[in-house]
Simulated assay, not measured.
Amino acid sequence: MGSNAAIPVTETTASGRPRARAGGAGRRWRAAALGLVVPVAAAVGWELAVVAGLSDGRLVPPPSRIAETFTELAATGELARHTAATSLRVAAGFGIGALAGTLFGALAGYSTLARTLVDPTLQALRAIPSIAWVPLFILWLGIFEASKVALIAVGVFFPVYLGVLGAIAAVDRKIVEVGRIFRLSGPAMVRRILLPAVLPSYVVALRAGLGLGWMFVVAAEFMGAGEGLGYLLVDGQQLGKPAQIVAAIVAFAILGKTTDWLLVAATAPFLRWQDVVAQQEPT
């Protein structure tokens, strides 16, 4: 009582907003370390359970056996080859699906007529299971890369489309009216009013689309792929190699989290103006 050291002091900028405190890199590293607590604890716990004889680890291999599988796949070059094939498919499908979803979502969100014409059909198509597209894409595009990329693009398209459509439709009418009062032109209205209002939701939509892209690539690689992490899953199932199956699943998890982090890092500079609760340190 009486010690000023216990009172947090927040610096503010000239506009009155809190100034970012030093040590941001340290906070990010601490957050990353905290994010590893649950998977590392689960891995250690399962390893100890197998060592203690509580499980034979045959169907669910312990982390040490999965690490051995990773080492073997890396030594033969298979891990790099399959990872590169899957990553290229996801990159191509994500690019096509995100671009199409952005364009259609922006059109449907900006124009009531376009939304009335296009949205019901797209909502009906969104309800179709991903696996139902497989035979159709094989008939249209063959069994090679085009059909796989198309399936991934379909998975990415719908969350991006819905995110953009919903974000534009939810823009506060008062903000738009302020832009009209200041007689902003169409491009200026988009740049100064709509984009800042839509961008946070758009980033979330891109992250959701990217996650579905990694899910859809598994179905895509079940379509007769000769390489890719999905091929490793099928190969592990056919040859009775649970360690290979789990290793492929772990690889998917690592790649998915890494690309999600890269997307968040790439878009963070465009969202620095936000002053939201999510920017606080974990407690």
Score class of each variant (00 low, 15 high):
Leu212Ser: 00
Gly186Tyr: 11
Ala150Lys: 05
Leu239Gly: 14
Val190Thr: 10
Arg207His: 08
Ala43Leu: 12
Ala268Gln: 12
Thr71Leu: 14
Glu177Ala: 13
Leu212Lys: 06
Ala197Lys: 01
Ala266Pro: 07
Ala114Gly: 05
Ser130Leu: 15
Leu232Thr: 04
Val277Asp: 13
Phe157Gln: 02
Arg126Pro: 09
Ala5Phe: 14
Leu79Cys: 01
Gly226Ala: 14
Ala92Tyr: 06
Leu271Val: 04
Arg126Ala: 14
Ala114His: 05
Ala42Lys: 09
Gly97Cys: 03
Val9Met: 10
Gly53Ser: 05
Leu206Met: 08
Arg81Ile: 01
Thr267Asp: 02
Ser201Glu: 08
Leu141Thr: 02
Pro269Tyr: 10
Pro196Asp: 00
Ala167Gly: 06
Val38Arg: 05
Gly155Cys: 01
Ile66Lys: 07
Pro129Asp: 04
Arg126Cys: 11
Met1Trp: 12
Phe157Ser: 06
Pro200Ile: 09
Pro269Thr: 06
Leu206Phe: 07
Val264Pro: 03
Glu145Ala: 11
Ala150Cys: 08
Ala170Pro: 01
Arg272Pro: 05
Arg19Val: 12
Leu195His: 03
Asp235Ser: 15
Leu233Gln: 05
Gly93Asn: 01
Leu99Gly: 10
Gly224His: 03
Ala106Lys: 02
Leu151Asp: 00
Ser147Tyr: 07
Ala220Leu: 02
Gly240Lys: 05
Phe270Glu: 01
Ser201Cys: 04
Ala52Thr: 08
Ile175Gln: 15
Phe252Tyr: 12
Ala33Pro: 07
Val204Gln: 09
Ser130Lys: 12
Val51Pro: 00
Gly213Arg: 01
Ala268Cys: 08
Ser111Gln: 07
Pro196Thr: 03
Thr71Gln: 13
Val246Cys: 04
Asn4Tyr: 14
Glu68Leu: 15
Pro8Glu: 06
Phe270Gln: 12
Gly23Phe: 08
Gln237Val: 15
Pro282Val: 11
Val203Gln: 02
Ala42Trp: 08
Leu194Lys: 08
Phe270Val: 12
Arg27Gln: 10
Thr83Lys: 04
Thr267Tyr: 10
Ala248Phe: 05
Ser15Cys: 09
Pro135Cys: 07
Pro8Lys: 10
Ile96His: 04
Ile66Gln: 01
Leu59Pro: 02
Tyr110Phe: 14
Gly101Ala: 06
Trp273Gln: 10
Ala43His: 10
Thr69Lys: 13
Ile131Val: 13
Val171Met: 00
Val250Gly: 08
Leu107Ala: 15
Gly209Cys: 09
Arg115Gly: 15
Pro196Gly: 03
Ala41Cys: 09
Pro63Val: 07
Gly211Gln: 04
Leu141Cys: 09
Val190Asn: 04
Arg28Met: 14
Val51Gly: 03
Ala67Asp: 06
Gly163Gln: 09
Ala220Arg: 01
Pro8Asn: 06
Arg28Gly: 15
Val203Trp: 05
Gly35Asp: 00
Leu212Gly: 06
Pro8Leu: 09
Glu47Ile: 09
Pro196Glu: 06
Gly155Gln: 03
Glu281Val: 14
Val176Lys: 12
Arg89Thr: 01
Tyr231Thr: 12
Val176Cys: 12
Tyr231Gln: 11
Leu151Thr: 04
Val190Tyr: 06
Pro135Ile: 09
